[in-house]
Design a protein around this nucleic acid. Sequence first.
DNA 1: ATTAGGG
DNA 2: CCCTAAT
Length: 548
Amino acid sequence: MEVEGLLENEKRETHIVADTGQALGCISNEVSPSGMPQLESSEGLSQSENTEADTEKLSAYLEETVPSGAKSSSDDHVTQSGRVGECLKPLDGPLEGGSSTSTGCISSKPDFSKLKGEICLDNLSIKELHEVFKATFGRDTTVKDKLWLKRRIAMGLTNSCDVSATTFVIKDNKLVKKDNEDGFNNVNLGAGKEHLAVAVEYNEDLLNNLSSQIDEHQTTSEVRLGNNVVENNFASEDLAADQRAAKRVRKPTKRYIEELSEAESKEYSGRSIASTKSIGFRPLSSKAHARPARNVSLEGRTVITRLDSLGGFGIQVPCVYRIRRSRPRKNVTALLKFHPSGMGMTATFIKKGFDVHGSQMDNGSMNKVLEAKSTPEQAPEQFVAESKKETTPTDMGQNMGLKYVDPSGDTSDDNVVTVPTAKGGIRRKHHRAWTLSEVMKLVEGVSKYGAGRWSEIKRLAFASYSYRTSVDLKDKWRNLLKASFAQTPTDKGANSRKHPSMPIPASILLRVRELAEMQAQASLPNLSTGKLSACGGGSVNETRPGYL
DNA sequence: ATTAGGG
DNA sequence: CCCTAAT
């Protein structure tokens, strides 16, 4: 009963929500809590959802926001990215700092309780679900979606259980508060998270078929909130932390090590490639074992590239020392040139980069500095392009007609790894996750211009993305094809709970397969008659089967 | 410079 | 994603 009052309070008083945001360290509370009429993007969205779980209003709001967000000026992007930076920074701190406590909490018994919640709920009717809902959250719900109810209740329970160590216990599907005094903050946090996550999720359920547009938003919020929206949204922070750590310390691919050691061995002494290989292997595996204990505080990438750092085994793993065979690194001069003028304008981005990486930079790699400077180089161009382009009609109908703000547009430098080379060469290894919008653009481009005309596609459909070379497009397409064909036949087995990093956009995969088949069919006859049609010399389209 | 493929 | 061979 007390909980009831508490939740009610929490719902009405927005500043408490704001408090939650701070506690989470990620929810932006820059938007005015009350009005939020023309919010720029998902931040405001999250907030609104957090404040009121009024789904109807929400969906309407979404529909309005989407287009307005899409045509937002470059100015918008700037502020947005700035905010992201601020958002990321606090996230990192508390996460790692508090990991010890929360981890303990998690490991205690989340799985069990969640399981219990689901099992119980499965047998209930909608009506009963409603009751449970009311008992759980202290208010009625008009939602008739059974699945949603179950999810939400389950989440409520698990969330509460999340803080149960200090605040709640669960009895007979009801929440019972154990002690309030010192757990107050936790209560709010849990409740807030729950509302927010649920709101977002339900929203997603509702508008799911609005397709990628929404998905995009969903993903965005998800990222910003630290994965709150994921199915098992309890323990999300820790998961995120873990994943991040894992990502950070991910060792270079086996192949790279092999390759590199091979190269080096060739260079130094033409013999015993095999032995070098095996040597290169050993430390790696042992490192992998030793990792978990100590990795957290280290910046993996930087460390990995150093000779001495691999566990102090005395064995030198020749990670990177290798002469660059091609591409003399044209950028360097361009960088220097760009720096003075661009700095002022792009200071925000740089700042973000520095803030995030922060102290890690001090271990002296000049390369890192260079990189940080170099990054914004593409940023302004990007934005300008983005604001003025985007006239592509995309009458493909369905889901692709919508416009969107690409969240990755402002994610300028998240995953750049610099690999210093002995001879002063610097090699950057990018990894940018493909966003839904990018994938969609790619698909659309392929459908328009045909697979294979990557440069065309890049020029026309990917004008705004300065990264993503035509090769990238090709690769991505290849992967998409693989995915689209691999996924469909095995809907059961592959559906197993483990999709940590793959947000399968089913609709897109379908499109991909369609296109693939079309291309295949188009290209086969084309091959047989190819010479003829080529001789005919169609001036415009040539032999390409690119049309729909 | 672009593409296709392999890794 | 990177690298290369082939156009």
